[in-house]
């Protein structure tokens, strides 16, 4: 059920949202587990998703829009362990800053991936990283498939070839 919100409540939340950190926006404790964060996000969506406020007045609609975008932003950071760690580090710095720019975070991650020389083409990198994930999940066959895909984009990538050789050995043993 969509929860009924008083306009005053929406206005008040919108006024303070810029000062709230992502944990406060979702109303979870900083150490909260992932499932708690998910539930909190769902709860926040029930209250603030724009779909539930289509008929509200224009000024309220703008506030809802702003709030809901901040809620997804908070969730996008906190549901991902890597981003969440970066965010926790930011909060630990005792700054006033409560937001972390997603774009910069991702640019840094892309850079890190590049630094690891995991391929020279977007698809090569993508399938190589998927192969690594499959391997971590114990899906060696999947990893082999992904590496084969990666190699179709980068025929001469020695790293890919080595890895494939290694995985094939694992499969036969």
């Amino acid at each position: 059920m969509a929860q009924h919100l008083e306009p005053a409540e929406i206005k008040a939340f919108s006024r303070i949202i810029d000062e709230l950190n992502y944990y406060e926006i979702l109303e979870v404790k900083p150490g909260a587990e992932r499932t708690k964060i998910r539930d909190a996000f769902h709860q926040a969506a029930r209250r603030f998703h724009p779909d539930g406020h289509r008929n509200s007045a224009e000024d309220l609609h703008k506030l809802i829009d702003r709030i809901s975008k901040r809620i997804t932003e908070a969730y996008t950071i906190l549901r991902n362990p890597r981003r969440r760690q970066a965010y926790d580090e930011l909060l630990a710095k005792d700054t006033e800053e409560v937001r972390i720019p997603l774009a910069e975070l991702e640019a840094a991650a892309e850079k890190a991936a590049d630094d690891a020389h995991q391929g020279t083409t977007p698809n090569g990198r993508r399938y190589f990283s998927m192969a690594n994930n499959s391997e971590q999940q114990g899906d060696i066959k999947g990893a082999v498939r992904n590496l084969q895909m990666a190699l179709t984009y980068e025929r001469d990538n020695e790293l890919f070839k080595e890895k494939l050789e290694e995985l094939r050995k694992q499969l036969t043993s």
């Binding site: 829009d65 975008k69 969730y75 997603l102 991702e106």
Partner: peptide, 17 residues
């Protein structure tokens, strides 16, 4: 082309640079 909002990010969302 630099990433602003990654694929599979929940919407609605907004990013400022």
């Amino acid at each position: 082309a630099e990433t602003i909002i990654e694929a599979n990010t929940p919407i609605p969302i907004e990013q400022t640079r």
